[in-house]
Computed example of a mutant assay.
Amino acid sequence: MCLVWVCDQEEQVIATWQAPGSCPYCGGTIIGADVKRACRLCFVPVCFSGRRRTLRCSLCNRQVEG
């Protein structure tokens, strides 16, 4: 008997904008984004989380807390 756990998480960027300030790590510009996530189990959507705002540096791609 074999049990295979197949799950996936898909992220879709809805909107982006340039946030004020600069990255504390490298000094690059900060890009804000609205992201919508969907969790899937065996290619069937299980849950959708609402829109989440994230702030990331455009140079080093680190997530910045704001």
Results as ranks from 00 to 15, higher is better:
18 Q>P: 06
57 C>Q: 00
56 R>M: 05
7 C>I: 08
26 C>K: 00
9 Q>P: 00
54 T>F: 05
42 C>E: 10
39 C>Y: 15
9 Q>M: 05
25 Y>G: 01
33 A>D: 07
66 G>A: 06
66 G>R: 08
47 C>H: 00
15 A>Q: 11
16 T>L: 05
60 C>R: 04
27 G>H: 08
37 R>L: 13
21 G>N: 02
16 T>S: 07
26 C>V: 00
13 V>H: 12
58 S>F: 05
26 C>E: 01
61 N>P: 04
58 S>A: 09
26 C>H: 01
49 S>I: 15
41 L>V: 12
60 C>F: 11
3 L>R: 02
20 P>I: 02
50 G>Y: 05
45 P>V: 15
38 A>Q: 10
12 Q>D: 09
26 C>M: 00
46 V>M: 15
27 G>L: 06
39 C>Q: 11
35 V>P: 02
62 R>K: 13
45 P>C: 07
17 W>A: 05
7 C>L: 05
48 F>Y: 09
41 L>F: 11
28 G>D: 01
9 Q>G: 03
62 R>D: 07
61 N>L: 14
1 M>H: 07
10 E>L: 03
6 V>A: 12
38 A>T: 07
26 C>Q: 00
35 V>T: 05
12 Q>S: 13
52 R>I: 10
33 A>T: 09
39 C>P: 00
59 L>P: 04
19 A>V: 09
61 N>V: 14
20 P>Q: 12
20 P>M: 07
45 P>W: 13
35 V>D: 04
66 G>K: 07
51 R>Y: 08
62 R>F: 08
28 G>P: 01
36 K>S: 06
26 C>T: 01
54 T>C: 04
57 C>T: 00
62 R>M: 02
44 V>E: 15
60 C>L: 06
16 T>I: 03
65 E>G: 05
48 F>D: 05
24 P>C: 13
34 D>F: 03
27 G>E: 04
32 G>R: 14
6 V>S: 09
2 C>W: 06
4 V>E: 15
45 P>Q: 11
46 V>W: 11
37 R>E: 15
64 V>I: 15
38 A>C: 11
59 L>K: 03
45 P>F: 04
51 R>W: 03
61 N>K: 14
30 I>P: 00
